[in-house]
Design a protein around this nucleic acid. Structure first.
Lengths: 218, 218
DNA sequence: GTCTATACGGCGATAGAC
DNA sequence: GTCTATCGCCGTATAGAC
């Protein structure tokens, strides 16, 4: 069994990462055994643990890379817009494309967060940073598009990312969920949130009060 | 080894369910081995598989029961309100309490959906029905509170449940997340959504357009 | 420090006898 | 329903080559 001069660590990491990216996308996370990853990448099973700690650490690395690419793409697309609304539409279109074509990334991102955020500080940190990058891209996008700092723009980012993740979960339950409806609804909400933060008088939606019906008292 | 007359199936199911509810809440899902469940409930390991198919089937049963109780509680609380806004506040308070006190239910609900919705039609169906029950409770609550049918009230439900789940994920990443902020933000959004559906002229938030800055063309 | 090979313990899940 | 295997897969431990 020739052991040859060993490859540089980075090369090995890359082989593992690309094999894992392919197999996780194809067969899912749970459906991809570490033994199979070792075989596919041509690297010993124990070396995978040496590099990534455990299967979840490998997943975190795969997802971090994949998601970063998407964040960057969407950001750049939005920057090419010539109006604030177009910037929003481009961002939403990017999110939608990701849901349609790479939902496994979003799905596993959620899964990883829920499964290991307790007890694995390193992975939690990695996920938190990824989320922070996505959200600050949105905040920056809003600032650029509107041309001014929007108060509490963080919350707009939270809502967008929250609804994005809700779509992923929703598709799992209702595969024929209407993305048109969901995204146009989200568009409307974001427009309202930004507008009401720029002009707080818009929050006067309490026209609900007078319409209130009479319900039996407890 | 006396095998005795076997207990009725329902009694056995109940023993398993209550043991699982307790252990899943205490030690988490992954942290609770089926062997331990068998020991704690006093029922043989294989009988658990006999009753629930597999560990995930058991989890689905546990969650269905626990979540149904919460949906009912929140619904009843909202019905006791004397105005539309109070009904919303009661519903939001109920959701918040659930996040604060029983977030493991929401967390595992999400996890189960993401992990097994493919490949396990029974569990997917169970989760979808649960989601549908929660959403139709919201829709009915809105109808009762406003005293009229709100067009596309489904989407309001989707947004509320989506943000609820986003909070659960968010807390996993940022344990000191401000629930005050998140829920008051959600309150604002729901009020807007309902109001704009009752009076579509409110959707004229396109005051963003004039503020649009000039960005470099691609 | 980087990697291989083997063996082993733990857990979910199934099969078959009773 | 219970029991006793038994399988597969994650993860670890160990020992050692380059």
């Amino acid at each position: 069994m020739p052991r040859g001069p060993y490859q540089k660590s980075d090369v090995t990491r890359e082989k593992i990462l690309s094999a894992a990216t392919e197999l996780f996308a194809q067969r899912g996370y749970a459906g991809t055994g570490v033994d199979r990853l070792a075989e596919k990448s041509g690297i010993a099973k124990t070396a995978i643990y040496y590099h990534f700690g455990n299967k979840e650490g490998l997943l975190a690395a795969v997802l971090d890379r994949a998601a970063t690419v998407w964040i960057e793409n969407i950001k750049q697309s939005a920057e090419r817009a010539s109006s604030a609304e177009e910037a929003l539409d481009r961002a939403l279109a990017g999110m939608r494309t990701m849901v349609e074509e790479k939902s496994w990334i979003l799905k596993l991102l959620l899964l990883l967060t829920l499964e290991v955020a307790d007890e694995k500080p390193e992975i939690r940190k990695s996920m938190r940073q990824l989320y922070a990058r996505a959200r600050s891209s949105i905040v920056a996008g809003i600032r650029d598009a509107v041309g001014a700092d929007v108060p509490d723009a963080d919350m707009v980012g939270n809502v967008m990312l929250g609804q994005l993740q809700a779509v992923v979960v929703g598709l799992e339950l209702v595969p024929d969920l209407s993305l048109d409806e969901v995204f146009s609804n989200l568009r409307e909400i974001v427009l309202y949130m930004v507008a009401s933060r720029l002009d707080p008088s818009l929050q006067e939606t309490a026209l609900l009060q007078p319409v209130a019906p009479v319900l039996p008292e407890a």
